[in-house]
Nucleic acid binder design. Structure first.
Lengths: 226, 226
DNA sequence: TAGATTGTTAATCGATTAACAATC
DNA sequence: TAGATTGTTAATCGATTAACAATC
């Protein structure tokens, strides 16, 4: 990083905030008004000190012996994450994975709304999936400007990811959630988050190999199936 | 961790291996036979020292001035991750997200094959999606035993995640890829990897809020849309 | 040989964990 | 008041980065 940073919040803490938020919304719905770090930690199998430290990044100040007011804590986290307003996003790549996100309400709950989809397959262009129109990627820059969109979900095959990413940068995107299992080479003024399911699978399988628990030759079990 | 660990490979290194693997397969397909860390690092925008360190977890030994033989490096990584054989997996939750994974070939390329799907919605039970039959979650334990499956992808709504996870543990799963944005409370003999897209979105949006680049009130732009 | 590259050992950096003071 | 809880400061731990020796 070449830019001077002024006491930026630790990324691991920021990434845990949605977990807290989900739990807090749950207990608010159940009528709970106050909550302590100890309580949150217990519910989420975390360390209470870590929870407290994470919450401080939002600037909230709790009361000793009491804890935090649930509704205020929710507000403060939402505001810190910018999730108190809906932000528009583009979805690039309307394959199996991309299509899933069009109907995925998790984003909406967390302040992100997919407002248009893009692809290169001519048979998809002009169709509407889950109420969202599919455009050709050529129109990315034009529509980004018109619709004031700066966030993109990238869900194309690995081989097409870099080209699509360059289009997104050219279209003025400020943040990209990359679901393709590739590193994107784009200017670091654009924030990229890689959601890499292959990496998660690697973490699991390598540990199972270590402990020799991975079923060695699965194919042989196939005839047992039906 | 209460179990004594014997020089386990660093998790961040393990999680980067699939990235290297993807690139190595790509250059092997293009006919390249030898590769150096410098080259890999340049292609993937990483540090060459880090690449070298990551590769050493597989136990491979390179030749100074030469580098590594691409095909051997691929073999060694695949073997380290246990991706040289196909491992069977269950998919739990056939909603939008779950269905996407049924047709997602990324897993297959990386040694994971979904062999059956599970849900609780009666209208889905007995149907076949992408060639995979959907069973009731009641049958998890029975079929896990019969099909010798120990890996599960959990793609149910957050509210249903804990219950489904308990069923999976009871069914003898050894590894769970959790796509629900919740912490699962299960014995630590079962390896869990959380794929948390909300966390990635949090990382992006919080940084955009910091730099005041997040479009403040998106809803007002809606009429511009069509 | 010379220089590029590997592999190892030490230094830095950041996050987590522990210890403790402050407070309702 | 006493004790639970917050908030802060210090210690630990692990990963990344830097420095350097080994080698083809």
């Amino acid at each position: 990083m070449d830019i001077e940073r002024q006491k930026i919040a630790p990324l691991p803490s920021v990434k845990r905030l949605p977990l807290y938020l989900g739990y807090l919304r749950e207990i608010r719905a159940r009528g709970r008004e106050l909550v302590s770090c100890t309580h949150i930690a217990e519910a989420l199998c975390l360390d209470s000190v870590q929870v407290r430290k994470d919450l401080t990044v939002t600037g909230i100040i709790g009361k000793p012996k009491v804890g935090y007011r649930v509704s205020i804590l929710i507000d403060v986290i939402e505001k810190f994450l910018g999730w108190n307003n809906l932000t528009g996003a583009f979805l690039v790549g309307v394959g199996n994975l991309g299509r899933a996100f069009l109907g995925y309400n998790m984003f909406r709950e967390n302040g992100l709304e997919i407002v248009a989809a893009f692809d290169v397959a001519t048979e998809k262009i002009g169709t509407t999936i889950q109420g969202k129109e599919v455009f050709h990627t050529e129109r990315l820059a034009e529509l980004a400007k018109k619709m004031n969109v700066q966030i993109a979900l990238l869900a194309v095959p690995a081989a097409a990811a870099q080209e699509a990413a360059s289009l997104l940068v050219a279209a003025g995107m400020k943040g990209i959630i990359n679901l393709a299992p590739t590193k994107l080479d784009i200017p670091n003024s654009v924030i990229v988050e890689n959601v890499n399911i292959a990496a998660s699978w690697a973490a699991i399988s390598s540990r199972l190999v270590e402990s020799q628990m991975l079923s060695v030759d699965f194919k042989q079990n196939k005839e047992v199936k039906s």
